[in-house]
Each structure stands twice: as structure tokens, then as C-alpha cells.
């Protein structure tokens, strides 16, 4: 079947590809500015942030949205939150409920406290800091999810995973069906974004934020900061209040919960 997308969006569907992010880069290099959805049944080089691998098994949604937002790089980064909302609402749709999905800063989507999706955004800026294009990569675990990796002292801590099927949605939606729902959510939120920017996204994201106002840990490249998740600022930075009252603005890092030691 072919996914039916909102008016104005193109779709390229591959049976197998290196990764939809790499394809988005090739499309952008050819001058395609989107909006274009790229989906694949399988990826041979699925990847996440800082080249972590993303398990790309059949039956899951693997896709990238290529858009040309024409906004400053700092603004484009806030589309991370919009993306998490769209993915969260897509999961709600198939779960038939909204209370099981929470969002972890900035764009992790947790279903029953487990990672159900991966999101990766890559931009290219031209002169003047404007974004020439933005590739929004999304993987949603529909039919399967990775088993926890064997514990290794060197491995970065990983988050437990889940799929819609494991959460009780049987049979799970076909990837094309999930893309139709996701693309419709994007169309609606992007229309709002074009009119009002981050303003409506921020409270909607906070309303579903995991551990808002509670203790969390932020792991940076070279240190781990425990503190209270006190706010999300207008730039999208996580506001972390440390035990001594110091306030840190976090724009990159991994959030963990204190019980995950």
C-alpha cells in the first residue's frame, strides 16, 4: 500500500536503503527542498545521535521529513520539541489513550516509561545562520524493539525500549499507516508553527514532560549533573537547578532519572 499524505508532501518509499537521513542529504544536495517524506522498510546503516546505531528491523516506521524552513539554526533546533509532540500524538492514536506517553527532554518519546521512538534532526546552515534544509529523522517501534544490550562497563547507559505491539497494540499498525498519522500531525503542528513559532509548542510539550519539577540527572560529555528540572526556557534549553541553587541551562545532554543507577 502507499501512504496517503496531506496535500503538498511528496513521498519516496524504499524497500531497503542505507538510511533515510543519508537519502535526505542526497536529495537536498540535488536541490530538493521538500516537504518530502522518505521512508524505508529496512535500513542497513540506521543511526542515531553521535552515530549510535539505530536498530532498523522490518515492521517499524523508519522515515525522514525533509523541509526547508528558512529559519535561523537556533529556531530550527526547537522543531525537536514539535517532532516529539507529533510522535507522541501518533502513539496516542494507536494506543487509544494519551496518558501512557511522556516526553523526555528534548525529544525522547517514552511509552510506559520506555523508549518507543528515536528522533534525530540535522540541519545545514548557509550564510547568515539560516537553515537551508532540515532533515527530521524518526524511527517508531511498531512491531519490534531492541532487546537490552548485554551489560558492559564501557557502554553508555541505554534506555529500555518498547514497541506498540509490546504495549498491547495487536496487530501493530503497518508502517505506512503510522506514517499517515504522523504526517497529518506534522502538517497540523507545522501550520501552527508557521503562524506562532515555538509559543504554542512549549506548553504542549511541557504538559507531557516526564519528571517536570522533579529530580533528574543530565549526562554531558564530561560530567553528570543532578538537579531539579525546573523549566524549559524560550530557546528550548532545559533549566536545571542544582542542589546549591546554581541554575544551569542545558542545550545538549542526555537526561536520566535518579533510579537508573
Amino acid at each position: 500500500m502507499t501512504a496517503r499524505l496531506p496535500w503538498g508532501y511528496d513521498l519516496i518509499h524504499f524497500e531497503e536503503i542505507d538510511s533515510t537521513m543519508d537519502e535526505a542529504r542526497r536529495q537536498a544536495a540535488k536541490g530538493v527542498s521538500g516537504p518530502l517524506w522518505i521512508m524505508a522498510d529496512r535500513q542497513t546503516k540506521g543511526r542515531g545521535r553521535r552515530s549510535r546505531t539505530w536498530e532498523s528491523g522490518a515492521g517499524n516506521l523508519l522515515c525522514t521529513l525533509l523541509i526547508n524552513p528558512g529559519i535561523a539554526a537556533a529556531e530550527a533546533a526547537k522543531l525537536s520539541f514539535l517532532t516529539a509532540l507529533c510522535v507522541g500524538e501518533t502513539l496516542d492514536h494507536f494506543l487509544g489513550a494519551a496518558h501512557r506517553v511522556r516526553l523526555k527532554w528534548p525529544n525522547d518519546v517514552l511509552l510506559d516509561g520506555r523508549k518507543a521512538a528515536g528522533i534525530l534532526l540535522e540541519s545545514v546552515s548557509g550564510g547568515g545562520g539560516m537553515t537551508e534544509w532540515l532533515a527530521i529523522g524518526i524511527g517508531i517501534n511498531l512491531a519490534r524493539h531492541p532487546e537490552p544490550a548485554p551489560a558492559s562497563p564501557d557502554a553508555a547507559p541505554s534506555w529500555p525500549a518498547i514497541s506498540l505491539r509490546a504495549a498491547g497494540v495487536e496487530p501493530p499498525p503497518a508502517p505506512e499507516t503510522a506514517l499517515e498519522v504522523l504526517a497529518a500531525r506534522f502538517d497540523a503542528w507545522l501550520a501552527l508553527w508557521r503562524q506562532q513559532g515555538f509559543a504554542p509548542v512549549r506548553p504542549a510539550w511541557l504538559a507531557r514532560a516526564a519528571r517536570f519539577g522533579e529530580p533528574i540527572e543530565v549526562r554531558l560529555d564530561k560530567e553528570t549533573l543532578p538537579g531539579i528540572f525546573t523549566a524549559l526556557d524560550e530557546s528550548g534549553a532545559l533549566v536545571l537547578t542544582l542542589a546549591d541553587g546554581t541554575v544551569r541551562m542545558i542545550s545538549a545532554g542526555d537526561v536520566f532519572f535518579p533510579e537508573q543507577h
Binding site: A77, K78, S123, V124, S125, S251, A252
Partner: peptide
């Protein structure tokens, strides 16, 4: 430069 899990080459 990474901000909000957005990678900006």
C-alpha cells in the same frame, strides 16, 4: 554544534 538534539554542521 548540537542544540536540542539537532545537529548543525
Amino acid at each position: 554544534i548540537e542544540a536540542m538534539k539537532t545537529m548543525n554542521p
